Simulated scan of single mutants.
Amino acid sequence: MILPGSPFPGPRHRPDGGGAAIVALGGGHGLAATLRAVRHVSQNLTAVVTVADDGGSSGRLREEFDVLPPGDLRMALSALCDDSQWGLTWRDVLQHRFRSEGELDNHALGNLLILALWQLLGDEVAALDWVGGLLGARGRVLPMSAVPLDIQAQVRTAAGVEHVRGQSRVAAAEGMVEHVELIPPEPPARTEAVRAVEEADWVILGPGSWYTSVIPHLLVPDLARALEQTTARRAVVLNLSAQQGETDGMSAGDHLDALLRHCPGLRVDVVIADPSAVEDLDVLGVAAEACGAQLVLRQVRSGDSGAVHDPLRLAAAFRDAFEGVIGDVGTTEE
């Protein structure tokens, strides 16, 4: 059986009534949170996903087949699924994990489906478009790079500075992460991802694992250049808490400083933060100003969970920012 290259109808054109062209960059649960929120604001969405995962099902498939790690791509597709019974059922199928005493244990079915389409089509983006079509996805999912990547971090510990390689090891590092880099250095970006950023109305960074899901986008030269030069406005969504291991001891302002350290040419228009997650509003305000951004404080935390973004509250914050109705710094909404 030979499948056509892609069910996706060519270059992206904004559909009538589809809303602003929005590109969200990240990976894992953080990117999924953004996508679940921003789909309430626009139907013209693109997710650009990190490809450095080396743990779990993704890491095993990456090592065995020398492919991009599919897990974060799968999660982004699932977050964009259609709300019909069809879309939600196929989302659950994609997310299903096998439990056994054999080699299939902990593999996500969606990872295997994506891998199968990669092998059939020989084109990662076309394969992701096919999975998106199956889900009725409200948007497109793209890998940020054409090759699988490794993350290496400089971690300051009580014994000095250590070099830690691998996304899963960096995420669990015991110490303060000071700097990250990609291996191979200066990797090629997917041209579709670069074009999406260039043509966007808004680009969103965060929330998510700061050093292993958010900052890596700034370390792909062509993608970083597009982020610096795009006419789109740029929004950063801060996390609701520090991530154990990766960002222990970092304040909200430190997160913005880390972005500028890794991409000094980056300018940001809006920083969205939940006031309950900000230790010092004045310090965060200074950090936002250094990025060229206006600080927007909104209650975006889910009421029944400590560190999960509520999709509707975050959507309301995005809507305010996109429409320019962002009020005064320090204003919060229920």
Rank of each mutant, 00 (worst) to 15 (best):
A277V: 02
A108W: 09
D320K: 05
P221F: 04
R91C: 00
D54F: 04
P7W: 09
A316R: 12
G87R: 00
R156T: 11
W210L: 15
V300N: 03
N111I: 07
S251M: 08
V325C: 11
R39A: 04
S209K: 03
G136Y: 01
I2S: 13
Y211N: 01
R233S: 05
G56I: 02
L115M: 07
V203R: 05
V67I: 15
R234I: 14
S276L: 05
G132V: 01
R190G: 04
V296K: 07
G26V: 10
L238Y: 08
E192N: 06
V203T: 11
A116C: 11
I326D: 15
R62G: 12
L295C: 09
P148E: 01
N44P: 04
Q95K: 01
L134F: 02
A315W: 01
P143A: 03
P70L: 06
V38R: 03
A321F: 06
L121S: 14
E289G: 10
H29L: 15
L120P: 06
V286Y: 14
M144R: 01
L256S: 11
P207T: 02
D310H: 05
P15T: 13
H309C: 02
R195P: 01
L77K: 01
V308Y: 03
F65Q: 07
S145E: 05
T332Y: 09
S100M: 09
D310P: 04
V147C: 04
I114P: 03
E246A: 10
A242G: 08
V23N: 10
A159T: 11
A232N: 06
H262S: 12
W118R: 14
V271H: 03
D105I: 09
A242M: 05
